[in-house]
Design a protein around this nucleic acid. Structure first.
Length: 237
DNA sequence: TATAAGATTGGCT
DNA sequence: GCCAATCTTATAT
């Protein structure tokens, strides 16, 4: 299908393990771990969407955790329970999808036991399967580097064809699911403050963003920064 | 009923 | 660096 390496910025220093065909969906109990541990565990996993137009998949390389009700950055801050946030209050492993700026959809993995409204935002993928379809969905030609297809929370949902229809769906079975990748050594993961939550007061400094160190597909807020690793130091947002 | 802002992206100066 | 797109949600009248 896609023969060339999916990214142009150099290979990451990660042992990716077996190819996606060998990856099996995770089981529901994968999501039953503390939120921070789950955030780490999500890095390197496959995100697969088997849509009618075709199957697309990518490796998760960047996430952020949101931990209501005490986290001022979270939509569920203060225990705010609405039609939008309701799924966060349910069991882990389901999809929390929301629309932002009336334009884009963002995908979260619900975390923590029922009643604890926590979630992990998927911020970036390394494109892996069916880049042709991703380019069509994104309206981008061959000249665009592969990482630009999925290096942001709104971009990756567009590339994989994820819409509000996925709201509340379980993420351990088709059509939208996680498939097991490698467990990453701790030293390949960096952490730092979350992106675009200036309104969250002190919570904006919490180092609740995690990414694979030096990976070229990590998001670049504003589209100009050279990569996520530059913001690794705490207090740089 | 009205208004403001947003866990973003892409284009232009 | 600045700003428009576009609309749901939250909050105030």
């Amino acid at each position: 299908m896609d023969k060339s390496p999916p990214f142009a910025g150099g290979a990451p220093t990660v042992n990716w393990g077996p190819p996606w065909q060998a990856a099996r969906p995770v089981t529901a109990d994968f999501f039953e771990q503390p939120t921070e541990a789950l955030a780490y565990a999500l890095l390197g996993q496959w995100l697969v969407h088997d849509a009618s137009e075709g199957l697309t998949a990518g490796r998760i390389v960047e996430v952020e955790m949101y931990r209501g009700p005490h986290d001022k950055g979270a939509h569920s801050y203060g225990g705010r329970r609405t039609a939008r946030t309701a799924v966060m209050f349910g069991p882990p492993g389901h999809a929390y999808v929301y629309r932002i700026y009336g334009l884009h959809c963002c995908l979260n993995v619900v975390a923590a036991p029922p009643g604890a409204p926590e979630a992990i935002l998927i911020r970036a993928l390394e494109p892996g399967v069916n880049l042709d379809l991703m380019r069509r969905r994104r309206g981008m030609g061959e000249e665009v580097p592969a990482c630009r297809l999925t290096d942001g929370p709104g971009k990756l949902t567009q590339a994989l064809g994820i819409s509000m229809a996925a709201y509340g769906q379980p993420l351990w079975q088709p059509p939208l699911y996680l498939a097991a990748g490698p467990a990453l050594p701790a030293e390949t993961v960096d952490r730092g403050p979350r992106i675009n939550i200036a309104y969250a007061e002190e919570a904006r400094w919490y180092p609740w963003r995690f990414w694979i160190r030096g990976h070229p597909c990590v998001s670049r807020p504003g589209g100009r920064r050279a990569g996520g690793w530059r913001e690794g130091a705490l207090g740089t947002q």
